[in-house]
Design a protein around this nucleic acid. Structure first.
Lengths: 192, 192
DNA sequence: AAAAAGCCTTGATTTATATCAACAGATCCG
DNA sequence: CGGATCTGTTGATATAAATCAAGGCTTTTT
């Protein structure tokens, strides 16, 4: 039930069986149907979700009803509205499932308790965050400095799994483009 | 010499005098002249810089010689090529001083030693990183979802100090725009 | 099985931004 | 001090992306 989660954990910090049991006692498993919300903008994000199976996405909606995808999360990734999670302010993003999914929830209080009882866990959260930060910086850099065409090629090479499992118009949104534009860019690339 | 640095530290984790001394022993102060490089792309980023005084920026240069500004750092901020710092791979960014500046360097080995001897410090680095992550996420979100005009207004309201101290064309670059375009956008905003 | 919804593509047109070029004021530097 | 560099603005034109509209294919729902 928590296989991937502990696999990910143990890759970064080796845990004893006892430590695993402590952590396990604070986790909440949850299943989501396709399209089901994990979080709606305006609510407070009370937990970080680790994806055991399936795909989730975080996105915002503007006045015109357009969706802007902020993040995808496949197996082994975590997803949350971190700002809301940390500050307790209302979330700016919606999070929902793109397919039937299984996740592990770590609430704020669970995280605090785990940190107290398994100090090593802080190293894990720091490494997690570092990875997330670097990934986001790469994304930002590519938006600012690469022509759209190369940005798409880079995206595909870094996240082939997302490219396969997520509808194209959502990838367009993730890249800050309209679906028609991405379609034309793909055509152009294919013709080379 | 390290006033701002310890002020920032003590806001997040209260330190004893002994702990401060330990940390202090691992720090390296440095002065930079305007235009002086702290890091050049291709080199390994050996330290995180905390800005005591002045302004630095991180940027990349593309084939056409265009600069793309990734980050500014004023007093109280930190700056580095985090990816290079963590992995030891060559840096992708240049970092230099926009004015005469004073910084505090924390090398990788210094950080490791501090973490060993002052475990609390990990909480600080985690909070630092969390803040940096949230700031970057906000920036990314605004790039993807806001029209340029509102993005600029938001930038000004969040970073009035940067807007005042940094040349406009660098802010344009930070926003992924050409200087002419930003100039026109400002004109448009002013006429309202 | 049929209807509906979701998804991707293509074409025509509009809008936003980049590019090219020139200029004027400010600041830096020998 | 005076020329050079840096900076911000404006205009004309070219290019890229958004928008509007339609069609066909696939998947989901009833």
């Amino acid at each position: 039930m928590y296989e991937l989660f502990f696999k990910s954990l143990n890759e970064k910090i080796a845990l004893t069986k006892e430590e695993e049991e402590i952590i396990k006692s604070y986790l909440t498993p949850k299943k989501l149907r396709k399209k089901q919300y994990l979080l709606q903008a305006g609510d407070v994000c009370k937990a970080i979700a680790f994806v055991e199976k399936g795909t989730l996405r975080a996105y915002s909606t503007d006045e015109k009803g357009n969706e802007h995808i902020i993040q995808f999360a496949l197996e082994g990734w975590t997803i949350s509205d971190l700002y809301s999670f940390i500050t307790g302010e209302p979330a700016q993003y919606h999070i929902d499932a793109l397919e039937d999914s299984e996740i592990v929830l770590i609430t704020k209080s669970a995280q605090d308790e785990i940190l107290k009882r398994v100090p090593k866990y802080e190293t894990y959260t720091r490494m997690q965050l570092t990875g997330a930060y670097m990934a986001m910086q790469r994304r930002l850099t590519s938006i600012i400095s690469l022509p759209v065409e190369e940005r798409y090629i880079q995206f595909i090479s870094i996240y082939p799994d997302i490219a396969q499992r997520v509808p194209q118009h959502m990838i367009a949104s993730y890249m800050g483009l309209k679906p028609e534009t991405l379609s034309r860019i793909r055509k152009k690339i294919a013709s080379k």
